[in-house]
Design a protein around this nucleic acid. Structure first.
Lengths: 147, 147
DNA sequence: CGTGAAAAGGATCGGCC
DNA sequence: GGCCGATCCTTTTCACG
């Protein structure tokens, strides 16, 4: 389904999605046309979800990062909960998790005041009985995925 | 430093970094050339860190996702710790955090057995006195950052 | 699946407002 | 800063192995 050449292409594109198919092809021992065909198929199959840019959070007023574990008194894995969390601007990711907490969300804000406001919003969501916040002081690293 | 037009460009590029500067320019009311100049400057200033692809984790054998809170008996915010964590294949992100735990890492593996192996590797790192693992059952959503 | 080459469309640069 | 226009390069497609 995804062979070694595909994996190599994925790694290269994760590093830099602006390089030409010519360059890409040379790196994996293929012609530009073939490299292109491979990548198109990866896109069509959904292996490549999209091409994006990585933005420096601090440069756009999102310098504060925290993970919030959310405890619930009821099942919160349904669309209404999802929509309520989606509507909170400070929340960037939301996951249903196993363990003492029901949900884990990643929050990014400009200031700690905004973080506080976001926590208030989280508490206002139906079913939330408690939160535990882990504030990120520094990000050590973020590796691209190795396929 | 980053005005409204820049912010609009960042949002558009996060959604789809493959669109032409012509399209981009029309969306923000600029010519293709000017849109291009804006984006280049955003790159040069480091606001745009890089252009990447988003890969479906399940498609490349990374279907299992977990967050691990790491407790330490000593300060673990120095390069040696960083390097030790970098060397662990299953770890995708590592953050220094405030709270009961010292570090928070994001782990992605193909299977729960591999997750277990990764936890073993984490315990082998100098200074680690305990871990608390939060397994992700389902990802609700991952929003692009709104500048 | 791969290749090579032609056609179409963008990226990029310089001169100018 | 932004616009326009002219190259140059890439993406994209196609007939063929």
């Amino acid at each position: 389904m995804v062979d070694d050449v595909d994996r190599a292409l994925l790694v290269l594109l994760q590093q830099d999605a602006t390089q030409s198919y010519e360059t890409l092809g040379q790196a994996v021992g293929l012609s530009a046309g073939s490299a292109h065909a491979r990548v198109r198929k990866l896109r069509d199959r959904g292996v490549i979800r999209r091409t994006t840019i990585e933005v420096d959070p601090a440069a756009i007023g999102r310098g504060v990062c925290a993970y919030v574990l959310i405890k619930a008194g009821e099942w919160m894995g349904d669309p209404p909960t999802r929509d309520a969390l989606l509507a909170i601007a400070g929340i960037q990711e939301a996951h249903i998790v196993a363990g003492a907490a029901s949900l884990l969300v990643k929050v990014r804000t400009a200031t700690t005041e905004e973080l506080q406001a976001t926590l208030r919003e989280i508490f206002a969501v139906e079913g939330v009985t408690g939160t535990e916040t882990v504030v990120v002081l520094e990000t050590f690293f973020e590796k691209p995925v190795r396929p």
